Amino acid sequence: MDVFMKGLSKAKEGVVAAAEKTKQGVAEAAGKTKEGVLYVGSKTKEGVVHGVATVAEKTKEQVTNVGGAVVTGVTAVAQKTVEGAGSIAAATGFVKKDQLGKNEEGAPQEGILEDMPVDPDNEAYEMPSEEGYQDYEPEA
């Protein structure tokens, strides 16, 4: 019985440690998101679009440190934060509304985080759909 109880105690310690790591990862992701939003706020009209992409990228980098179902929630929060940063930029006159959601080359930025393969159960990952990809044929 002692062996059984000791095993359960060790398992509990492992769960607590994993929860603490997840909590730490979420806190880091939130900190990076805040950094990115402050970065966007300090940019001029020309830099705002690039700044919004930076927020998304920093958040995406930190999301990889967070495991399990938390990833889905962090990704949703990050996307809403990026959308909010863009709205703030438009409201303050840093950028025109028609410039939001495009990178410096004018290509749409939507789907940055949505296409990231995420499995809350950590069982399997699927690649994003290939609808947006084109076949590449090298020139002879």
Results as ranks from 00 to 15, higher is better:
62 Q>T: 08
75 T>V: 13
2 D>F: 12
5 M>C: 00
27 A>S: 15
74 V>L: 12
3 V>I: 04
52 V>Y: 14
61 E>T: 08
134 Q>A: 10
117 P>E: 10
27 A>W: 11
140 A>T: 08
100 L>W: 08
129 S>V: 00
76 A>I: 06
102 K>F: 00
9 S>V: 02
20 E>H: 14
67 G>A: 06
103 N>A: 12
110 E>R: 04
44 T>R: 02
94 F>N: 08
125 Y>D: 10
37 V>H: 00
109 Q>Y: 15
49 V>A: 15
76 A>E: 10
72 T>V: 10
120 P>E: 07
53 A>C: 03
130 E>M: 06
135 D>E: 09
54 T>I: 14
116 M>Q: 13
90 A>I: 02
24 Q>C: 13
134 Q>D: 12
29 A>M: 04
100 L>Y: 15
77 V>Q: 03
104 E>M: 03
129 S>D: 04
34 K>I: 10
111 G>E: 10
133 Y>T: 12
72 T>H: 00
51 G>I: 13
88 I>Y: 11
61 E>G: 01
122 N>L: 09
90 A>Y: 09
52 V>T: 01
89 A>F: 06
129 S>M: 11
83 E>C: 01
72 T>M: 14
17 A>C: 12
49 V>W: 11
139 E>M: 13
86 G>R: 08
51 G>S: 12
71 V>S: 03
88 I>G: 02
137 E>M: 12
42 S>C: 10
92 T>C: 04
68 G>N: 14
60 K>Y: 08
84 G>Y: 06
36 G>R: 13
79 Q>F: 06
38 L>T: 05
61 E>N: 03
127 M>G: 08
33 T>D: 00
49 V>K: 10
43 K>T: 08
51 G>C: 14
75 T>A: 08
115 D>E: 10
127 M>N: 08
134 Q>K: 15
45 K>W: 14
135 D>I: 12
48 V>A: 05
6 K>N: 08
15 V>G: 03
32 K>S: 15
99 Q>P: 08
65 N>W: 11
93 G>I: 11
126 E>Q: 14
20 E>D: 06
82 V>H: 07
127 M>C: 03
9 S>L: 11
136 Y>H: 06
34 K>A: 07
91 A>L: 12
77 V>A: 10
75 T>H: 04
79 Q>L: 15
113 L>H: 04
137 E>N: 09
130 E>W: 10
54 T>R: 07
89 A>E: 04
58 K>W: 02
89 A>S: 07
91 A>D: 08
117 P>I: 10
22 T>N: 01
14 G>F: 06
112 I>D: 05
102 K>R: 01
61 E>W: 02
128 P>C: 12
28 E>S: 03
57 E>C: 07
70 V>L: 15
12 K>W: 14
121 D>C: 08
23 K>A: 09
87 S>N: 01
68 G>Q: 03
29 A>D: 01
91 A>S: 05
72 T>A: 13
5 M>Q: 01
132 G>R: 04
32 K>G: 01
80 K>P: 03
19 A>I: 15
129 S>R: 07
57 E>S: 02
38 L>C: 10
22 T>I: 00
96 K>R: 04
58 K>Y: 14
25 G>R: 05
11 A>S: 01
11 A>V: 12
43 K>I: 12
73 G>A: 04
119 D>S: 03
129 S>Q: 04
12 K>I: 12
129 S>I: 04
54 T>V: 14
28 E>Q: 04
43 K>G: 02
115 D>K: 10
134 Q>C: 08
43 K>C: 11
135 D>Y: 12
83 E>I: 05
57 E>V: 09
71 V>H: 03
59 T>W: 15
67 G>C: 07
138 P>E: 08
138 P>V: 11
87 S>M: 10
81 T>H: 02
128 P>S: 00
117 P>S: 08
80 K>N: 15
116 M>S: 15
29 A>H: 05
29 A>I: 13
106 G>S: 10
40 V>D: 00
